[in-house]
Design a protein around this nucleic acid. Structure first.
Lengths: 251, 251
DNA sequence: CGGACGCGTTCCACTCACCGGTACGCTGTC
DNA sequence: GACAGCGTACCGGTGAGTGGAACGCGTCCG
């Protein structure tokens, strides 16, 4: 799944061997996951430690703060994040539910920020994490406002059923997308995670056509009613959109 | 400043050539900053692009989202961030001023999170960024609650004068540290950035002795009075501390 | 207009950094 | 006490990586 015939490839493979849930991986586990010979892993991991991208502890390796620093400098995410934060903040304060900011990358959603309080719903999303587009509110609203080539690419691909509620019928999904395009809102009802509901609104580009990002509010079945927050989400998204439009340089 | 005699070293040097403020660097600029031959930079940068760590645009290279993803998986920062976020959120809501979460790394402060609203004070700090310890509230409070070896190492090193208000007299600084250790609070008054005031409190370890992190509230000279928020900051920090202590596995 | 720059790209022969099999020492565990 | 799994260390062969040189652009001069 990675190019392993170059040092760099091996190094990246090692780093990516850490899944979103992994904190500490012993050398042997890295060997297993990458398929690289033991000696090689040892050496390359040592190099990575030297460069502060990896940290070596008694019980294994972990991703080091050098990576965190570099990651936070990634250009697009950073500026978007900086401009968006106050709006997300406001939205959280108004709703006191989990707030997400996401962008499209290929045929997936990448979450740029996630903020929530003590009572936030348990959700699998993470800042920096990825999710499919067809079963999340942010994904749907981004897809609806994307170029038609992207839309058809996603609809053509396999639509994984993540829960019994996941919409897998292309026709129904397309209908929801059309509606999202009209209303500027997309919903998710336990389609990615049981017990979670979500509303999302697009952050539109200067031209008002394509979405550069999307904002959502998530809450648990029961106390949470998506419709109750749809206006707040839309307001936050459009406010962020026009602020971004006012920025020189863009992005 | 970096090991340049290995592919990995060159790659890391390229990535680190991007300063906190840089968004787009042309190849020639990378050549200048790294001192590497043009051909080499071209090739290595190409490799990095292939691995989604770098992005190539019309006008130069930028750090890509692959880095962002990896960075957000860095173990220590991530769990701390996840647990802390609700507390930072509360603190922001109570004060509506810029809130920071920072940890010590070597003799510097690394900001793990920064949240603020529309009216936040202009500060040079960034999530993932670094600052000296002796001229920031978070730095001081972390230093006060660190092993004495760290304290003396910092006090021995050169204390850069960043503003006319920066405390550079080791005696006075030490006095402030002692006071911080007693009261569990440290202050900064335009010592790192003109026009900015700050209060910080330590997030203490299980044993209550060493600080694993620190929380601060920052605001502009004029409307902002650090003392008015010191209790809120301390409350947030201790609440976070005891929550962390309750966690299995630690960190 | 021509020449001189700065930039990104491509090429290629040399060579040294990288490779990975092998072997060692240390822990537990049956 | 044999064994299995782990982390570490060694080392000769070799091809991935190297970087100097040359090319094709634009652009800014005189």
């Amino acid at each position: 799944m990675e190019e392993l015939d170059t040092v760099l490839g091996k190094a990246v493979a090692l780093l990516r061997a850490f899944g979103p849930e992994d904190r500490l991986l012993p050398l042997a586990e890295l060997v297993r996951r990458t398929g690289l010979p033991k000696g090689t892993v040892h050496r390359v991991a040592g190099d990575l430690v030297r460069h502060r991208l990896l940290e070596k502890t008694e019980h294994g390796y972990r991703l080091a703060s050098g990576l965190f620093e570099l990651g936070m400098r990634a250009a697009t995410e950073r500026t978007l994040l900086e401009v968006a934060m106050p709006f997300l903040q406001d939205l959280y304060e108004r709703t006191h539910e989990t707030v997400h900011l996401g962008v499209r990358e290929g045929t997936e959603v990448v979450y740029v920020a996630k903020i929530g309080g003590h009572r936030q719903a348990r959700s699998p999303s993470r800042a920096g994490g990825r999710m499919p587009m067809h079963c999340t509110a942010i994904g749907k609203v981004l897809l609806a406002h994307a170029e038609s080539s992207v839309r058809s690419a996603v609809l053509a691909g396999p639509l994984a059923r993540r829960t019994p509620h996941t919409v897998v019928a292309p026709g129904l999904l397309e209908q929801q997308l059309d509606r999202a395009l009209e209303t500027g809102l997309a919903f998710e009802r336990e389609e990615s995670t049981p017990g979670l509901l979500c509303v999302a609104a697009p952050v539109l580009d200067t031209d008002g056509a394509t979405a550069v990002a999307a904002i959502s509010v998530t809450g648990p079945v029961g106390r949470f009613r998506p419709e109750a927050h749809q206006n707040a989400v839309r307001a936050a998204a459009t406010a962020l959109g026009s602020t971004l439009a006012r920025r020189p340089g863009g992005l």
